[in-house]
Computed example of a mutant assay.
Amino acid sequence: MSIAVCPGSFDPITLGHVDVVRRALTIFDEVIVGVAQNPGKNYRFAPEERLALAESAIADLPGARVMPVHGLLADFVQDTGASAIVKGLRGAADFDAEQAMALMNRHLSGVETVFIMGDPRLAHVASSLVKDVARHGGYIDDLVPTEVAAALTRKDSDV
């Protein structure tokens, strides 16, 4: 059985993320959506909220599951028995940002990173942009799963 880890902070998970997981499942038997914590980021959603939203977003994808990532991704990948890391790319800027991480993860664990080109129709979708649009009352229902749109609406009404 081939296993891949699709890591990210997923704050929040978007339709672009879900698309990458869906397409990774055509290559791998199982895809673990690894919800990570980056101390350099300010999160809109708490770790348990990001886990729950990711679980809801991939619930209809057989072979996909969500797990929290604690510590180094390279260690997590080895602990899960994954043979690859899967990352979605929207364009050259994403590749430039991901290349050093892919090389470091290979150095630390021997695990390769597989890049999947994002759907061009979703190339403009980024979690940070979705949060900004939602914060200003913009329409996000075609950018994120239904549960995420509702959660962002609740967050913004609490502010």
Score class of each variant (00 low, 15 high):
G40A: 09
V33Q: 06
S83W: 02
I85G: 06
G118F: 00
I32L: 15
M117A: 10
Y139F: 06
I32R: 13
G63R: 09
G16F: 03
F45E: 11
D158W: 11
A123F: 09
L152K: 02
S56R: 12
E48A: 07
A149V: 05
I140T: 05
V35A: 01
N105R: 11
A52M: 14
F95D: 02
Q78I: 13
R23H: 15
K41R: 14
L122P: 00
I85L: 11
P62C: 07
M1A: 10
Y139D: 14
K155R: 06
D142I: 00
G81R: 09
F76Y: 05
A150S: 13
A36N: 05
G71Y: 08
P39T: 10
I32E: 11
A24E: 14
L108I: 04
K155N: 05
A59S: 13
D19N: 06
R23M: 03
T14S: 06
E98N: 09
V133C: 02
L108P: 02
V133R: 03
T80K: 08
D96S: 04
N38H: 15
G137M: 12
A54L: 10
R135G: 12
L61F: 07
A102E: 02
G81M: 13
L51A: 03
V159K: 12
V31Y: 14
Q78A: 09
D119H: 06
R106K: 11
V159P: 03
A92Q: 11
V66Y: 07
I27C: 06
I85S: 03
D11V: 07
I3M: 05
P39I: 13
I13H: 01
G88M: 13
L152C: 03
I27F: 15
P7I: 05
V130N: 00
F45K: 08
P47E: 02
I58V: 14
L108E: 01
P7N: 00
L25C: 10
Y43W: 09
G138I: 01
Q37T: 15
D158V: 08
D19A: 07
G63F: 11
V20I: 15
D79I: 05
E98D: 12
D96G: 01
V35Y: 08
A93T: 14
R90K: 14
M104F: 12
V148S: 08
R65M: 12
S157M: 12
V66S: 03
V148H: 00
D60Y: 04
L152Y: 10
R135W: 04
I58C: 10
Y43L: 14
R90H: 01
L143D: 00
Q37E: 13
V159D: 13
V159A: 13
E30P: 11
D96R: 02
D11W: 04
H124E: 04
H124C: 03
P145N: 02
F45M: 07
V114K: 11
P145C: 01
I85P: 01
G88F: 10
